[in-house]
Amino acid sequence: MQPVPIRRVGPLKVSGVATAQVLLLVPVVVVLVLVVVSSVLTVVWVGILLLLAVLPLGRLIANAHRRMAATVLGEPVPAPYLPVPPGPLLGLRARALDPATWRDLLWMLWAMTGGFVLSFLVFLLMVAVVTLPLWWYAAVPLMRARSWVDRAILSPGRTEALERRVHDLTASRAVVVDHSAAELRRIERDLHDGPQARLAAVSLSLGLADDLFDSDPDAARKLINEARGTSSTALGELRDVVRGIHPPVLADRGLTGAVSALALDMAVPVELALDVPDRLPAPVESAVYFAVAECLANTAKHARANQSWVTLHHDGRVLRAEVGDDGHGGADLRGGSGLPGVAARLAAFDGILSVSSPVGGPTVVSWEVPCAPSA
């Protein structure tokens, strides 16, 4: 979901932030000095032990200043850190090789010099009575200037953002490829166990009927009737397989009609709020349709719910969806294969899925997918 913007604040609030930054000067200096000393001492084990403690502390301080910059600027300042693997030595190596760690050290130099001057100036203007009018008008611009620099240094750079984007796309592509391979295996299994076996039975029955036409016409007629019934069953199973690949109702009626058809088949009442264009890109429609179908199937099988709802809204750039129920809750994105499969399918389109399902309910599965309406 889109982050909720933080409200901008006035002189009194930014002065509190400035005071906190002035007080945090000593920890910033201590951490920077310890990092330098520890790096020199890495030739012995003492330096490694110091870095194990100092680098996480440096991130705590940098994150505190990110939050303060977000408070002043009125918008989030994300942390660009890469995931840290378990284990002290692996974690130390990951932090040392993370470009964000070096950005933190660069920021500490700024925080000790120009950043401290701006924050201390705001603090002085606030505590000196004769400068209160100047403080009232200058506090916010001064602190916004510092926060802009803090954000520029502490936020992900363009290169880091692109690298992370490539990493995320590579991971999502691998998941989608695995999911596609699993889908192909499922289709092959469904065809082998269902229509293929029935069509073989039809062929056998027709062959036997052909042999019995002259000697026992009644038995031949019975075999033909059985073959007709078996072929009808095979046709229905083929339709089910095709529907699992790309539902005909989706191609004929679009996403709104297809989701409405899903709701009609539910035993639990489903409230619909569908506000989407007539047509979206076909791959996105298919992914969202199967996401809704999986969520409603989970509701029917596991939730013991009395009511369910589906919300789809497209604002011209992003399709946002929500499927919920008033059941007993307990759904987990990490368990089973249904919701993780949905997340993998949506990730191929930069989709983001989240699950809220406390014990006792309700369960709400929401996601958003960037897409433009089809012409």
Rank of each mutant, 00 (worst) to 15 (best):
P373W: 06
D240A: 15
P217M: 14
V364K: 02
R146K: 15
T71D: 09
A372M: 05
V365H: 04
A70E: 04
T230Y: 06
S215N: 06
P86M: 08
M68Q: 15
A62I: 11
M126E: 12
V292H: 11
W309T: 13
L162E: 13
T256R: 15
P11R: 14
D190S: 12
L124W: 12
T299S: 08
D216M: 03
L134D: 01
G338I: 08
A287R: 06
R253L: 13
D193R: 15
L206K: 00
L73M: 11
E285G: 09
P156E: 09
T363W: 13
P362L: 12
V43K: 03
Y289G: 02
G338P: 01
S366Q: 14
M143R: 05
M108P: 00
R59L: 06
G316M: 10
D150L: 01
V26N: 03
G329A: 13
G194I: 13
R95Y: 01
P27R: 01
G351E: 12
E294T: 12
S119I: 08
E188K: 09
V166K: 12
V14L: 09
R8H: 13
L25F: 09
R253M: 11
D190K: 04
W110I: 13
R317Y: 12
D98Q: 02
P133Y: 14
L235R: 15
L97W: 06
V342G: 00
P283A: 14
L296T: 00
S38P: 08
L204T: 15
I48H: 15
L90G: 01
L82T: 02
R317E: 02
A291R: 06
C371R: 03
L235D: 11
A182I: 00
V268L: 06
A200T: 14
